[in-house]
Design a protein around this nucleic acid. Structure first.
Length: 511
DNA sequence: ATAGGGGTACGG
DNA sequence: CCGTACCCCTAT
């Protein structure tokens, strides 16, 4: 079984190659990427790759802006000046786009809107509102606040402020509008992005695998080369041998991952060449092979007294018997080896599943199916009669889980729900392993009459920033335009749906 | 997509 | 234990 960290190295390496997007997409789906870490080096590579992909497809979109925003929020942002320039250029391009003659012909909106003349202006006003009055305004506000400065200040430049003023003028002045079309061409934006990418890739340096390869060559020559990139540590001899192992087994690794991709293809899903949201993938350790896949563990005994709690340990992998400690990574672990914490509260079932390693196959399936890639909210199965598990599991709403996932797990022949609940409860529920078990903010599993399970979103308190933004947005755009308001502040409201905004507003006006 | 009704979780 | 914030479902 392929090691998740090695997978991350591979991905990091491959992302820098000139691979087709769809191939990259498949790689992301089929490699067992370990738990996400916002500060991981892979994160940066992924966003850069996403940006490169936009450039090579010659398709600038809000996603491009988002990529640039993410890049600016990374620690030690690279090529800050070029990044600012690229951001301003892309923002201007996206705004002006509806004004260009070419955009009237074939837009991506197949809805057959017969707007004809004037439609471009309408879209332009919307774009100014969305991009400059909301998005850029947020950046500027954050840049002024002393605390928010780290993230946003990197993008705010005199150029950006000037462009914003210009856009606002253009709303009321047709002459200015005409001037925008001439000056802010798409090519200009492409160029700015190209310049930034060139610098950023250069600054990133060689991938860990390349450095490792160098080191291996060095070892072979018996003189151990020095690593040049200070971000990566020198691979140890063990790591070197693991890399070699990897090469030897590359033909057979992840066979099941391929089957999954085929299944997805049959379902007609996952055909989009889009890369996943880069915030979803990361790696725990670059060049450090000691940490385990278990994070901090809490004793599951310490829960509410009105709950009945059970821990069932499934361990059908005979190879795991020799494993000395749950705190050590077990390379032979299979998907069927897991701990399930079950909690019965009133008419709800809450449970958490944790497995030591493996399950490299389920995650890709779920990601592909939902066309989302959820960083912490890994998916496991919830279908009547079936339970599946995921390393460091948490849960996701049922609507994110696909049929593909369910079908796959059927094939995998997992334990059935009845098997689990029919099992005798252990006298002492908490045995040797400490199970990762988030006491706060865990998801619940409701049981419906028809024996279906429905997961509930994690409850999250509204921050004052969210509240303020909502207040201002309603003031600006009126009550009821929830979707638009969400679009205006994609980062602030990233964890909220339009319905959430509506509900929150209902609460705000009640008092 | 949005409004409104209703269930659940959490803090006092 | 209760009130409220948060979340979900469904009709329109």
């Amino acid at each position: 079984m392929i090691d998740p960290d090695v997978a991350a190295w591979i991905l990091d390496f491959l992302l820098r190659q000139t691979l087709d997007d769809s191939l990259v997409h498949r790689l992301i789906l089929s490699l067992p990427i370990p738990a996400p870490s916002p500060s991981s080096p892979l994160h940066r590579t992924l966003i850069l790759r996403r940006l490169s992909s936009d450039l090579s497809r010659r398709s600038l979109s809000p996603r491009t802006l988002h990529s640039l925003e993410l890049l600016s929020s990374l620690p030690r942002p690279s090529s800050a000046a070029a990044l600012r320039a690229a951001y301003a250029a892309v923002a201007a391009d996206l705004t002006v786009k509806p004004l260009r003659p070419s955009s009237r012909g074939g837009d991506d909106d197949g809805g057959g809107g017969g707007g004809g003349e004037g439609g471009g202006e309408g879209e332009f006003y919307d774009a100014v509102n969305r991009i400059w009055n909301c998005r850029v305004a947020d950046l500027e506000a954050a840049a002024e606040g002393a605390e928010g400065a780290e993230a946003a200040a990197g993008l705010v430049s005199p150029e950006l402020r000037a462009t914003r003023r210009e856009m606002e003028e253009a709303v009321v002045d047709a002459t200015v509008r005409a001037g925008l079309v001439v000056r802010y061409t798409e090519e200009r934006a492409f160029q700015a992005v190209r310049v930034y990418l060139e610098e950023a890739w250069k600054e990133l340096g060689p991938s860990f695998l390349e450095l490792a390869a160098e080191a291996l060559i060095g070892m072979a020559k018996g003189k151990g080369l020095e690593m040049e990139n200070p971000n990566s540590s020198k691979p140890s001899p063990e790591e070197g041998s693991r890399l070699l192992e990897l090469v030897n087994h590359s033909g057979t690794v992840n066979k099941r991952g391929k089957e999954i991709i085929e299944e997805n293809t049959h379902e007609g899903e996952s055909s989009s060449p889009e890369l996943h949201d880069p915030s979803s993938v990361g790696w725990n350790r670059m060049g450090k092979c000691k940490s385990t896949n278990f994070r901090s563990f809490e004793n599951a005994n310490e829960s509410g007294n009105r709950c009945t709690k059970t821990i069932l340990k499934l361990d059908r992998d005979s190879a795991a018997e020799r494993r000395p400690s749950m705190m050590e990574r077990n390379p032979t672990a299979r998907t069927i080896e897991c701990c399930i914490v079950v909690e019965v509260r009133k008419n709800q079932l809450l449970f958490t599943v944790s497995c030591s390693y493996g399950l490299i196959d389920i995650q890709p399936v779920c990601c592909a199916a939902g066309s989302h890639h959820y960083p912490k909210e890994q998916v496991f199965l919830h279908s009547p009669g079936l339970i599946d598990c995921q390393s460091q599991l948490t849960s996701v709403p049922a609507r994110w889980v696909s049929r593909t996932c369910i079908n796959y797990s059927r094939k995998a022949n997992h334990e059935t729900w009845d098997d689990l609940f029919g099992s005798p409860l252990p006298a002492n529920p908490v045995e040797e392993p400490h199970v990762s078990y988030p006491q706060k903010g865990k998801d619940s599993l409701l049981v419906k009459d028809n024996n279906q399970f429905i997961l509930r979103k994690r409850r999250k308190k509204w921050s004052s920033l969210e509240e303020e933004t909502l207040r201002k947005s309603v003031e600006r755009h009126g009550v009821g335009n929830w979707k638009f308001i969400k679009q205006c502040h994609p980062s602030i409201f990233k964890d909220r749906t339009e319905v959430d905004l509506k509900d929150k507003w209902r609460n705000l006006v009640r008092h």
